[in-house]
Simulated assay, not measured.
Amino acid sequence: MNDNNKVSNKIADDLQPVSMYQMFARMFAHLAKEAVDEFGDKGAEAIKRGVWNFGVERGKGIAKRAFARGKPNDSDNYLISYDMDRSDEFESTDSYYEGYVEQVFSRCVFASEFQKMGMEQYGILYCEMIDPAIAYGYNPDLKCRHDKHFFTDNKCTFCFKLEKEKGAADE
């Protein structure tokens, strides 16, 4: 075959493609590392604020998705209105209860990439902030409890529960 006829955007059959999730995790870890190396705690706090703002924006979009389906932005409709498709690089079990949802991840490509790179200390800046921020953007009364993390527990656990803000008027 003439080299001039090669297709430039095709991955060779003998190479494993790198997913967008893997690329995102790698890019995030490198950006966070640079910010923390350069600015210390202030850099880490800036990264966390950026992740929070990103998450709130996503949560607002998820609320719009629930609304477009004619559903309230409550805990029952949170995960089914989610904006990120679950690839086979994630594995979770969702359990629905009266007023809350529990989610247990047994596989997460983000955590896996952070661990492969030895950059858990930077990845945790994403992991600790993103889900509470998305939940808040979706509904400020939807609280996210994130008790277990891959970096210490080999799984991530979440509980999403609607709670009234302190001082809110009773109905």
Rank of each mutant, 00 (worst) to 15 (best):
P17H: 13
V18W: 14
V18T: 15
M23W: 14
F24M: 14
F24Q: 14
R26G: 15
M27A: 14
F28Y: 15
A29E: 10
E34M: 15
V36L: 09
V36H: 08
E38G: 06
F39V: 07
F39S: 15
G40T: 11
A44T: 10
A46Q: 02
I47F: 05
I47D: 06
K48S: 09
G50V: 00
G50D: 03
V51N: 01
N53Q: 07
N53E: 09
E57M: 10
G59E: 05
I62Y: 01
A63G: 01
K64D: 13
R65D: 02
R65T: 08
A66N: 00
A66S: 02
F67E: 12
F67V: 06
A68W: 01
R69P: 02
K71R: 12
N73P: 04
N73G: 00
S75C: 08
D76Y: 00
N77E: 00
N77A: 03
N77F: 04
Y78E: 05
I80Q: 05
I80F: 05
I80A: 03
S81M: 01
M84C: 00
S87G: 15
S87Q: 06
E89F: 10
D94T: 10
D94L: 02
S95N: 07
Y96T: 08
Y97A: 08
E98F: 03
E98W: 05
G99N: 10
Y100N: 03
E102D: 14
Q103D: 01
F105G: 04
R107S: 09
C108D: 07
F110N: 10
F110D: 08
A111L: 09
S112P: 00
E113F: 01
F114K: 01
K116Q: 15
G118S: 10
M119T: 05
M119K: 12
G123S: 12
I124S: 11
I124W: 00
L125F: 08
L125T: 10
Y126M: 13
Y126N: 12
Y126C: 14
C127R: 04
M129L: 12
D131P: 05
P132I: 11
I134R: 08
Y138G: 04
D141I: 01
K143N: 01
C144H: 05
D147N: 13
H149M: 14
F150V: 12
F150A: 11
F151W: 13
D153T: 01
K155I: 07
K155V: 07
F160L: 03
